[in-house]
């Protein structure tokens, strides 16, 4: 129960406090780390598919509230992302920052790919341009920022290791 609370408090802090307070401070030319996705990776690696699916749904729903016309899209994406990351958890080589950063990068890219495709389908925005100029730098930056965040989670004993 205690671990459950700690994990949830931690990912909640990363998602919302990180997104609200840290992201504007870390922003470089309009590119800031995607703290919600980083927190989802932390949750999935720490707790598995079941919590990550629900967490992803709630996280996506909260993010959708700022774009009501696309309500449900990010909830759907993040649910699937949480489930996939949770399943991936048992197949990762733990303790390697490069692996963890790559997971975050792939997660951000997957999230943005689907989201931008949906937005492109509904609004006709230039998908490729946005993906290359916004999503890719965001993914790389998020991967960079995720390394210390995940190290912190390991240090706090939230990411369990048995090997």
């Amino acid at each position: 129960m205690r671990d459950f609370l700690r994990i949830n408090v931690f990912w909640f802090l990363i998602a919302f406090v990180g997104g609200v307070l840290a992201a504007p401070l870390l922003e470089i030319h309009g590119v800031a780390p995607d703290f919600p996705v980083i927190s989802l990776v932390v949750l999935a690696l720490a707790a598995g598919s079941y919590p990550a699916t629900i967490g992803g749904f709630l996280l996506g729903l909260v993010m959708d509230l700022s774009i009501p016309t696309l309500l449900g899209v990010q909830a759907l994406i993040d649910s699937c992302l949480g489930y996939g990351l949770g399943r991936l958890r048992t197949r990762l080589a733990y303790g390697m920052p490069l692996v963890e950063a790559t997971v975050v990068i792939m997660a951000v890219l997957a999230h943005d790919l689907v989201f931008l495709l949906v937005r492109n389908a509904t609004g006709g925005e230039p998908f490729l341009w946005l993906f290359l100029t916004h999503s890719v730098p965001t993914a790389l930056y998020s991967g960079l920022v995720a390394v210390p965040v995940l190290r912190l989670a390991v240090w706090l004993g939230l990411l369990y290791r048995e090997d």
Binding site: S49, T53, D64, L65, T69, G72, S79
Partner: peptide, 27 residues
């Protein structure tokens, strides 16, 4: 786990297929 995922997907799809104004009101 799959059931939870299916439920989340279902809820998301319900939100997605809501008519435009309803979606905004729900949001």
């Amino acid at each position: 786990e799959l059931a939870v995922l299916a439920l989340c997907i279902l809820l998301s799809l319900i939100l997605i297929v809501l008519p435009g104004d309803s979606r905004i009101l729900v949001a």
